[in-house]
Each structure stands twice: as C-alpha cells, then as structure tokens.
Design a binder for these strands. Structure first.
Lengths: 235, 235
DNA sequence: ATATTTGTATTGTATATACAAGTGTTCTTG
DNA sequence: CAAGAACACTTGTATATACAATACAAATAT
C-alpha cells in the first residue's frame, strides 16, 4: 500500500476543498457514508475526519455532522525562529559577541516581568549576533538567578543562552510580543547603525513550572531583518 | 465519567512533563504499559499518546518508543489577528474610514506580488481603522480583479475587504511578513502622526487555488500597536 | 571476528463491535 | 393544536483483535 487508506481519504477531502468544490460550511459525508464509499471500516473513515478536524480544516458536531471549517477561523500564525538557526539555514556564517555579562539590581519593570522583588539581584547578558560579520540582532536578556544560578559562568560563544536555560530549567511556556521601536543610542552602536533606523523588537518571556525564567529583548534593524518571510531575493 | 479515559491519561502525562519529573527526551511508558497502568485497552492508551504527539508534546518512533519532545522543537508561534476583532474584543469602538477605492495600473512590484501583467489594471483600497476615534492601522490592499470583479462596488464600512474576498474567492493560503519601517508622509497623515515614529508593517498575500487574490500592507504605529501581546496594562 | 538470522518490544494500520450522547424529525397522545 | 415520546442518524468513547513495519539486541552461522 503506497499510502495508508486514512491518508488517501484525507487527500481526497482536502482536494475537494482546495478546488472549491466543497465550499465553506458545506456538509461532508458522514463517517458511515465515507466508510462505504471507500470500502473501509467506520474507524478508518473516522480517523481521516478526526485528523482533519484537529488540523482545523473540518469542524464536527455530535449529532449534526461534519462540515468544512471556515477559512476565517484558521488562525494566521507567524513563527518566531532562533536567529542562529535562521542564519545557518541561509548558509551564512553566524557569530556571536558577548557585550555584557553582569549581575545587577532589578529596576521596576524588570522586577515585575521576572516576578522578583524590586532591586534584588538579577543576571543580565547582552549578545550581538552577526551574519557574515554584519550585526543583525541584539539580544538583551534578564535572568531570574533562582532558576539558573550558574548563568554568568557560561561561555555564550559556545552555547546560546536559550539552549543553556532549556537545560537548566525545564521550560513550559513562552510568550512573545512584537513591536516597532527606535533603538537607543547604545543599541544603535551595537548594531553599527549610523543613521536613525526603525527596529523590530521581539520581547520574549519564558516560564518554567515555578515562574518566569527569563525576559528577553531581541532587536533587529528593519532594513536587515524581517519576521516570517525568508527574504531570499535581495534588491 | 467526568472526563473520558484518554483525556485523563493525557492530563497525567502533561502534568509529569510540566512538573519536570519527565525531562526532555526521556522515555514515556509504552502503549501496552500505559494500558495496564490505567486498566484501559491499548487503543485508548494509544489515543492519548497520539494526540500528544500531534500537539508536538511527545515524539514517537516505530520500533523504538515514545519520548518527551524537546522544548526547542516546539515552534514559537505568533497569531496575526484581525484588527477589527481585536478592537471589539477589547471592548473598544471600531470604525473604518475608506480613503481610497480605485482601479490603477500595476507597477512592477505589485504586478509581481499579484502575479499579473505589468501595467494591467488592479484594484486598490486604503482603509483607516480607528479605535475609539484614534487611527490605529492603515490597510492598503491591492486586489487581482480576476478573482473579485465586484470589489470596487463594495461598501467597506459594512463588510471588511477580507470578509468580502473570503466570500467571493475560496482562500486556500495566506503568507505573512512583519517588519519595522518609517511610514511615508501620506501614511503618517492617515495615522495622524505628527512626529516621525517607527511603524509595524505586516504584509499579507492571500491565495486561492488559482493564484494570488490580494496583496495587503497593514501599517500601525509602534506606540499604539503591538503584535501578540494583549497590552492590557497601559503606563 | 564478522556477518546473518532470529526474536522481542514497540509503534502503525485496519477492522468489527458495542454503547453513549447529541440533534432533528416524525409520530403519538392529551 | 401542542407537548411529549419514539425514532433515525450523527459523532464520541472504548474494547478486542489482527497483522505490518521498524529498531534493537541476542543468538547463530560463516
């Protein structure tokens, strides 16, 4: 069997939807009907329908039937990737310069974000990521020392902070925010920006089961970096 | 039965992982072991494992076993939402002002993005979205007339362009790019920005089965809009 | 010693069956 | 006529079973 039966049925349904033959909200054959059409058991037909439902392509209601889900409900997702992976995948050279590695008292917004007491000591690291020698991202990270007491002793040219934290504290959740900002003079200098230029700022908070592990700002110049699209063709 | 058996098993596994008891890449009980532990059939235990695998929490290899997936592989996804929905969900008032609604010849980059001949006629709309009277997003959209010949006759104070296009052409795919830019003078005016301010620009291309339906630029000021985070507490 | 075979544990696919539970229609009854 | 009961059809949960396919280790043959 080249393809398993349930996969063939999935393909069949997807092609009907993509071709526009089955419109949004239109009824899809029931499990029993599909089973008969394809000469399979109900459980096999059911598997095809269930997996497409999990994928958000179909929508089912007990007692009513199965329907083509509305395209609107399919959320538009954007993947936030690791800059090092992204650079390597492009076949470019990735390097990383640690600029700051220190312990400092947490000022109010940092303390709130990390869930620690104000002015308690937290770790701070600033790394600059280079693609073929050009600075492309500043990574400023504040770390809760409770979860990663050995943070300051790491060599971040060898292991990325994110990898280290994953090893030390089992991460359970991450939240992201994306915004457009003008970089501070210090950040401009790290990014070697001579003219004022808008930057994309990604803020990430990572959680372990007991609280916030780290709070990170990723800042990239708008002219050299964008999220989501792989800017393959340069102008 | 309060919760179905397969869901209870899923819960059990998730709690073990979240608590850190089961580390990354560590082995999870096999289907048969789980079946015995919970006094269920192998198929029920299997369902729990399969669904967690689909969700990216576990990873399975035939012949080898089931393992806790690495947190790293869990991609960080950001949802790009509809501005109108977002505003309404915040309990604010949403209004929309159509600024431009015209047919125009496609200049090179637009023609390429839409997959039409250069200088052929395409439709263009510019809408300004307001939250409680404050401009918060400019939506500039270029539409392939082949898929939506009646586009210019719509009243976009009643129906959003996206909703209309979904009705007219069955959308099958959408791709997004996010970047930071400085707005043009015209955009600044539409957004009522008096000072130069960086903006978040989302570029979206939507596809039907036969080609690109529309090409959209969503521009929002960095001070009033961010992606992903619900900025609940204002300063 | 090295290759081959065999065996075992595991996940993957597929079927037949049973009953529960939700939805809507039709029939019955007051 | 209207309320309720019965029914048909749907998806949801659960089980028992069979065999295929893969990975790895151990036994065996060369």
């Amino acid at each position: 069997m080249a393809q398993p039966k349930f996969a063939q049925i999935k393909q069949h349904i997807i092609s009907k939807i993509k071709s526009g033959e089955w419109a949004e909200h239109s009824r899809v054959a029931s499990e029993n009907e599909l089973a008969e059409q394809f000469s399979v058991s109900r459980m096999t037909a059911r598997r095809a329908l269930s997996e497409l439902t999990d994928a958000g392509i179909l929508s089912r209601t007990q007692g009513l039937g199965t329907f083509v889900a509305s395209f609107k409900s399919q959320s538009n997702l954007l993947e936030i990737r690791n800059i090092a992976d992204e650079i390597k995948e492009r076949g470019s050279d990735h390097r990383c310069i640690p600029e700051v590695l220190e312990s400092m008292p947490a000022i109010a917004p940092i303390a709130i974000a990390l869930g620690v007491e104000q002015n308690s000591q937290v770790y701070r690291s600033v790394l600059v990521h280079l693609e073929n020698g050009t600075p492309i991202q500043v990574e400023e990270r504040f770390v809760n020392p409770t979860f990663a007491p050995g943070y300051l002793q790491q060599n971040f040219e060898q292991i990325t902070p994110h990898e280290y934290l994953c090893e030390v504290a089992p991460l359970t959740e991450a939240r992201h925010t994306v915004e457009a900002i003008m970089p501070s003079a210090q950040v401009s200098q790290w990014l070697s920006l001579f003219n004022e230029e808008p930057c994309l700022q990604v803020i990430r908070r990572t959680w372990s089961s007991n609280g916030v592990v780290s709070f990170t700002r990723l800042i990239s110049p708008g002219s050299k970096y964008r999220l989501g699209g792989h800017l393959t063709f340069k102008r």
